[in-house]
Design a protein around this nucleic acid. Structure first.
Length: 820
RNA sequence: GCCGAAGUGGCGGAACAGGCAGACGCGCACGACUCAAAAUCGUGUUCCGUAAGGAGUGAGGGUUCGAUUCCCUCCUUCGGCACCA
């Protein structure tokens, strides 16, 4: 009897050995192609979740595979350690977030080590440590110096529970709630710091040279929300400019009124004394309404006439200017021309307030549109009418300059100097100020005389004070600290105050992939040589939930740094792959309150890390995820026990037939071919099932006396190499200890497929009659198409009942279909 | 409303290029070993039917000798956006 499989003994043993030997250290080696494998770093909540395992262990397996393929692989790990939960916990417990965070990190490091992943811990970064956030501040200053960071007063989303502002991306759902705590957000007018993400909107829409999932690209594209049209200058009667944006300049002649957002700065001067009261009442009402109420799409349109008029620049028409809350100050210019005949919203508004409707696009082959009798706006293409010089111009359904009508009008507007082709984006600048303590300080100083100035770089980092008092309201202790904010102006030396807001934690994660390059360098954000060797990231893995947050920010950041000469290339991450989510056994999202959380530590304790790793790769398509199945893991546990037994049993050398051995070699190399391809494609579930199949074949081959033969040894060796990335510990134990091969299996090269061995020498051809499977014929691989045809016809003769086949289709060496 | 993804046995899933649907595993059933259980091993397991046979990849239609795969219409579920001018 061999000794039983004991993962609890072998796993810690090998982990310690690998660590001691620095087996996974990634150092520059010009003789090898590099591979930078990166997986999203965790927030140190204190416990590693099964979701972390699901994200990280297949990524680790892939990184290990690449290493065996001959790449010099870097696979680093760190902690995204700033953020609200730690601060909120501090308010409750009184324990400083740094203390708690460091404890949590220590615990999570242990848990991460239990995965047996090939992390190079020398490269670890912790975003809340001054060594790291010094550079987060430094990057802020670079953005500021290049005009990409600016401060402005704006209505911003504020979470009353977290007591801080949020970026637009952090506000979710129809009720516009806080991404973290689900509290509905409110609007506040605050002076805040922003990054000019909009300056990169156009470039962010291009995904040239990167292999990212279509899904992420679509999400980002929709989020950026590009629309092409024209900007046109209308004039008020007193001669002031009202700039509008429209996607339909071809309908300019049908503009019968204008609508401004209630907050539009020109409302004041346009409003006539008679209308002032009504306008102010409406403005007040709009201001009081929450965004939720205001932005409910199905709400009936309301508005108020300002009493003022504007002149339509294309035909001189005098048209009334209204205000209405369906026009948003935050999109376009905050003012629109209203063309009720061809826009659904304008139509509803015009009907309600009895405003004229003038059709200017006539659908071809239909009765002329009549503004008085139309029941809905006509939004399709046709021929321009009532449009002065453009009468007869074709308009189609295309958008922007692809539409001949739009293009012609836009060019004409430009010639006349009253408008031009223009593009507007939904993307807004990134609001990075947070009114909280636990984040990287914004390194800015305000002086009454000199205004805002950056902290001199030689004074970085601006450290968070440690002696702080927690307020139950969540208000930032930085604001109330007796001395911290008082400093001197870097320009005039007079008394000045620090910015007390801290940065959004997405700022920390926008450059962490650079942090890993050389955390030991204290004098530069990253070592240039390391950068030149390792960057860009070759494979990035993580959850889809970051599609419009982290993944946009980090792309923006890289492009901005590129333009400052700090980084090179256009994109930070070449290949992106998203894992799905492991749900609770009840099919719901895992949560403590539901009590459906699966604890990886317990699973490791019970089954060992290799089983957990293998199961996570096997139980679902990685990109889809699935509900957890606590019984299912028994299958992978059984697999590893069977592997263990097969390798540790005393096998009597047998006398297998040549046929048995050929079959074993064939299956071995076919499996290698499949496993190699599946690793390349991130298809982890079929890697494990292919290995299970091969194991079943090996058991059969042993039964038939294959043990002790060269084919058997080859199968064993390849089997362990194929397992090694998936289940690194058992593979090492069987390789180094049981088979006695040279340590370490993780330094072995990935084997190559022996195509000759993988070849089939017999083929089984299914024979269909009228598409229905009737027989199978077995032929030599050498059989010609004629041989196959003849054999097939003979085999199904009874089904033909003497009739002549109409057609016989022979598909390569795969199938025959006989049509009668 | 708009954009996107996904619908295959009791369950997770497989099917490289339009060519044997259900690999692999879970579960279940029966059997072997055992005083018994666990572990292990063996056999079976899409549905209807005793069987021959038939049906079958969300529904309906189309292309094709042949469709889980391609095209059209629709349904359901999930995700994102949402008065975006």
């Amino acid at each position: 009897m061999s000794k039983p499989y004991a993962p609890k003994e072998i796993e810690p043993k090998w982990q310690a050995r690998w660590e001691a030997d620095g087996l996974y250290h990634a150092d520059i080696d010009e003789s090898k192609p590099k591979h930078y494998a990166l997986t999203m770093l965790p927030y140190p909540s204190g416990d590693l979740h099964i979701g972390h395992w699901y994200a990280m262990t297949p990524s680790d397996a892939r990184a290990r595979f690449m290493r065996m393929k001959g790449y010099n692989v870097m696979f680093p790990m760190g902690f995204d350690a700033f953020g609200l939960p730690a601060e909120n916990a501090a308010i409750k417990s009184g324990i400083h977030p740094m203390v708690r965070t460091r404890q949590n990190i220590e615990r999570m490091r242990k848990q991460l080590r239990s995965m047996g992943a090939m992390f190079d811990w020398r490269r670890e970064i912790v975003s809340c440590e001054p060594d790291y956030y010094k550079w987060t501040e430094w990057f802020f200053i670079q953005l500021y110096k290049h005009g990409l960071a600016y401060r402005k007063k704006a209505p911003v989303d504020f979470c009353p529970n977290c007591n801080t502002t949020l970026a637009r991306e952090q506000v979710w759902g129809e009720d516009r709630h806080c991404e973290r705590c689900n509290t509905p957000v409110i609007k506040k007018d605050l002076e805040q710091w922003f990054f000019k993400t909009t300056q990169y909107a156009e470039e962010l829409l291009r995904y040239d040279g990167i292999d990212w999932p279509e899904r992420v690209r679509v999400l980002q594209t929709n989020w950026i929300g590009r629309s092409e049209g024209a900007s046109v200058i209308f004039k008020t009667e007193s001669g002031e400019d009202i700039e509008i944006f429209t996607t339909r300049p071809d309908t300019l002649w049908g503009a019968t009124f204008m609508v401004m957002s209630p907050e539009h700065p020109l409302v004041e001067s346009l409003t006539t004394p008679e209308q002032r009261e009504a306008v102010q009442a409406y403005q007040l009402q709009a201001a009081r309404q929450s965004d939720i109420e205001r932005e409910a799409a199905d709400k009936e349109k309301t508005g108020v006439f300002t009493g003022g008029y504007a002149i339509n620049p294309v035909n001189g028409a005098r048209i009334p200017v209204w205000i209405a809350d369906y026009v948003l100050m935050t999109y376009g210019t905050g003012a629109i021309m209203a063309v009720p005949a061809h826009d659904t919203r304008d139509f509803a508004f015009a009907r309600k307030y009895n405003l004229p409707i003038i059709p200017v696009i006539q659908p071809e082959g239909e009765a002329p549109l009549n503004g008085e009798t139309m029941t809905e706006a006509y939004t399709g293409g046709g021929v321009m009418v009532n449009s002065g010089p453009f009468n007869g111009t074709q308009v189609n359904d295309k958008k922007g300059r692809e539409n001949p009508g739009i293009l012609a009008v836009a060019q004409w507007l430009e010639q006349k100097g009253i408008g031009k082709l223009a593009v507007t984006y939904k993307l807004r600048d990134w609001l990075i100020s947070r009114q909280r303590y636990w984040g990287a300080p914004i390194p800015m100083i305000y002086c009454d005389k000199c205004g805002w100035n950056a902290v001199p770089e030689d004074q970085l980092p601006v450290l968070l004070p440690e002696d702080v008092e927690w307020r139950p309201t969540g208000e930032s202790p930085l604001k109330f600290h007796p001395t911290w904010k008082h400093t001197t102006c870097p320009v005039c030396g007079g008394p000045a105050e620090r910015e007390t807001d801290t940065m959004d934690t997405f700022m920390c994660s926008s450059w962490y992939h650079l942090g890993y390059l050389s955390p030991w360098r204290k004098d530069v954000p990253f070592d240039e040589r390391e950068y030149n060797y390792w960057m860009p990231v070759d494979t990035y893995t993580g959850g889809i939930e970051h599609a419009t947050m982290h993944l946009i920010y980090t792309r923006f950041f890289h492009k901005a740094l590129r333009d400052m000469g700090i980084t090179q290339g256009n994109e930070p991450m070449l290949q992106l792959r998203n894992q799905g989510m492991v749900l609770g056994e009840d099919g719901e999202k895992m949560s403590k309150s539901r009590g459906n959380v699966v604890a990886p530590d317990e699973l490791v304790e019970r089954y060992g890390a290799d089983t957990v790793r293998a199961y996570l790769m096997f139980f679902a398509r990685w990109d889809m995820g699935a509900p957890w199945d606590s019984q299912g893991i028994e299958g992978t546990a059984r697999w590893l026990r069977r592997v263990w037994m097969l390798f540790t049993d005393e096998n009597q050398p047998g006398t297998a037939s040549a046929e048995t051995l050929r079959h074993l070699r064939r299956k071995t190399h076919q499996t290698l071919r499949k496993v190699t391809r599946d690793f390349e494609n991130f298809e982890f579930n079929t890697i494990v099932s292919a290995l299970m199949e091969l194991l079943n074949e090996m058991y059969k081959a042993r039964e038939a006396g294959a043990a002790g033969t060269p084919a058997w040894s080859e199968a064993q060796e390849l089997y362990l190499k194929m397992m090694a990335p998936v289940t690194p510990h058992i593979a090492e134990e069987l390789w180094s200890e049981v088979l006695g091969k040279p340590y370490s299996i993780h330094l072995q090269a990935w084997p190559t497929v022996d195509e000759e061995a993988a070849k089939e020498d017999e083929i089984i051809i299914p024979v269909q009659v009228n598409g229905k499977l009737r027989e199978r014929v077995t032929l030599s691989i050498e059989a010609s198409e004629d041989d196959i045809r003849t054999a097939a016809l003979n085999a199904v003769a009874p089904y033909l009942e003497g009739r002549q086949p109409k057609k016989v289709i022979v598909v390569r060496k795969q199938l025959v279909n006989i049509v009668i």
